[in-house]
Amino acid sequence: MNEEFTPKIVGFLCNWCSYAGADLAGVSRLQMPPSLRTIRVMCSSRVDPLFIIKALLYGADGVLIAGCHPGDCHYMKGNYYARRRFAMVKSLLEATGFEPERVQLSWVSASEGIRFKETIEEFTNKLRKLGRNKAAKKVFV
């Protein structure tokens, strides 16, 4: 059954790098599993930790945050802050046993269409192994 299962990934892609990387993957006609739901944000640091938690509680199987490589941020240092926030959320998920494997932080530049495709493939496979997010069916959230 798990082979059939296509996880739902909520992807927060930064406008300047990762979104463009995704675009490049698209126009290059690279084949990817149809698992990603993209939300374009101006910077990876725009991702409020609450977005990640909400996505998971409302049933996303995975949450991807993708931004410019360190040092390449369009706003100079946004991705450094984003990395700290991400680490905080991940550590909270670890502390509470809320499947920290379901969140991922990746750096993808505008020229890395192939890297974007690989990121999606890898994450999708990982989530397939993890199975569906049980939070999606809970009544008492």
């Binding site: 930790p49 509680l57 409302y58 999606a136 069916k137």
Partner: peptide
């Protein structure tokens, strides 16, 4: 949400509140 889950607690977001609050004050 009720459709997805069959039923849902109202007001929901109890877990969201507590986990979210930890992201605000945990540090």
């Amino acid at each position: 949400e009720a459709g997805k889950r069959g039923a849902v607690k109202v007001p929901s977001d109890t877990l969201f509140y507590h986990l979210g609050r930890i992201t605000h004050i945990g540090i």
